[in-house]
Amino acid sequence: MENNFSLDLALIPKELKLILEIIKIEDVERFQANSSDWFKDIDWKLFLEFALHHRVYPILSLKLKKFEVNLIPQNVIQILNLTYKKNTLQMLHLSSVMVEICKIFNDNQIKLLVLKGPILGEDLYGDVSKRTSGDLDVLIPIDDLAKIEELLPQLGYEKDDYIQTVLNDWTWRHHHVTYFHPQKNIKLEIHWRLNPGPGKEPSFIELWKRKRVSSLTSYPVYYLGREDLFLFLVSHGARHGWSRLRWLIDIKQLVKQNINWVSLAKLLKKHQFLNVAGQAIVLCSQLLSISITNEMKPLIKGKQPKMLAQAAIFYLEKMVNLHTDPVPEDISKYHKRHLTFLMSRQQRVFFFISFLYPYPEDAETLPLPKYLHFLYFPLRPFLWAWRKTKSHAIS
């Protein structure tokens, strides 16, 4: 990398560094012959916690089977092997439900693109068991959400109605709604955007034109084209601080494929994701030892991708879980700042302008009849100031 740049990894726990080394190895015998120091003073309980947190236990389980018996405690290998087997059953179950959902949506004239789940296991790793997934994520046109509202409850899915909205801000502030099937123990996320707004991203029509058909099932299951998948995965991973290594390993697997880097660069530039993509490439290079090809170099040009990559190391120094509330205050503050740094100048402008648009909290602070909701625009600064004053008084 230019100027011999390297990330500061000093504060990453040695247990996580060992996991990274195991993930990277190609020749197990050579690694074992020259790596005895890696296994000294390892807290194996913490090693397992990191493996589960970062969702990398399928890869670790398969690699550790080839290791000498005395290097790693047998109970560690047994636990990883057990979780790997459970994950295999889960992915097969998800595959079955995925096909069922695709058939039902097709029968109801709803176009659907699968975003994650077993599709990525097959496409990126060649085997659904090598990647974990807790739910199914699919993308549909926003105009078909009304059909979903009627259809999914008939199939036994219950909506997690957590979205509060005013003046239809949900259409761009949010990007998915969640359904749960209690009997099948399946969580289904219905997306109408790839990412929460505000911000530019490819339209559903564009994504549909570039779609691929999965080889995982006999029934046609459609998913994102390679360049669109790259944009989605880097934007998703960055938005979550790359706090799970699995997301970076997905990028490592994806760059091995036949990506059209010229088209990808244009796509990323158009939708303001060049620096985010550069961050992912730098992290994969430094943590997972991918080779930076000439085609990738335009994505890591300048200081910003490297600065963003270093900032993301914070999430690996700790076991950060952004999905479980309450998120510790220090992590929450850091993450808010990091999300701002990820934005391009144009995205920041859109982001700050969006604060002028009414929030559901404004309607809670001053309930008005729906036909008067337009008044929340001029009233918003005053309502925001009132909430802040009240909050400070209470504290």
Results as ranks from 00 to 15, higher is better:
Thr389Ala: 10
Ile205Met: 07
Ser133Asp: 02
Ser289Lys: 15
Glu361His: 02
Ile251Ala: 02
Val114Arg: 04
Tyr125Lys: 03
Asn34Phe: 15
Leu113His: 05
Gln90Gly: 12
Ser129Asp: 03
Ala363His: 08
Phe47Gln: 07
Phe105Trp: 06
Pro305Thr: 09
His271Cys: 00
Val56Lys: 00
Asp169Ser: 10
Leu139Ile: 07
Ser61Met: 09
Tyr359Val: 02
Val221Gly: 01
Thr324Val: 13
Met296Asp: 00
Leu18Arg: 00
Gly225Asn: 11
Ala33Trp: 00
Tyr334Asp: 01
Ala33Val: 00
His53Gly: 04
Phe47Arg: 03
Asp123Pro: 04
Ala363Met: 00
Trp172Gln: 03
Gln109Asn: 13
Ile142Asn: 00
Lys45Ala: 05
Thr324Trp: 08
Tyr157Met: 10
Pro202Asp: 03
Ile110Cys: 06
Ile292Asp: 00
Met343Leu: 15
Phe352Ser: 06
Thr83Asn: 13
Phe230Pro: 10
Ile249Gly: 01
Trp386Ser: 09
Ser214Phe: 07
Ile163Lys: 06
Ile25Gln: 14
Pro182Ser: 04
His93Lys: 15
Leu224Glu: 05
Leu46His: 12
Thr171Val: 14
Glu149His: 05
Lys211Ile: 06
Arg380Gln: 05
Glu100Ile: 08
Asp144Ala: 02
Leu322Phe: 04
Leu322Gln: 08
Val276Tyr: 06
Asn294Tyr: 06
Glu206Phe: 03
Ile79Pro: 00
Pro153Ile: 04
Arg173Gly: 04
Glu317Asp: 01
Ala10Cys: 08
Gly302Trp: 03
Pro378Ala: 10
His373Arg: 14
Arg210Gly: 00
His338Gly: 04
Ile205Trp: 05
Phe31Glu: 00
Thr340Ala: 10
Glu68Phe: 08
Asp160Glu: 07
Leu366Ala: 08
Leu233Arg: 12
Phe377Pro: 06
Ile259Ser: 09
Thr340Glu: 11
Ser289Gly: 07
Leu267Arg: 04
Tyr162Cys: 05
Met319Asn: 09
Glu329Phe: 14
Ile300His: 02
Asn34Glu: 14
Leu155Ile: 07
Asn34Trp: 08
Ser235His: 07
Leu120Gly: 14
Leu224Gln: 12
Val349Thr: 05
Leu62Ser: 12
His175Arg: 11
Lys270Ile: 01
Met98Arg: 15
Phe180Asn: 09
Trp208Lys: 00
Ala33Thr: 02
Trp170Arg: 03
Asn321Phe: 13
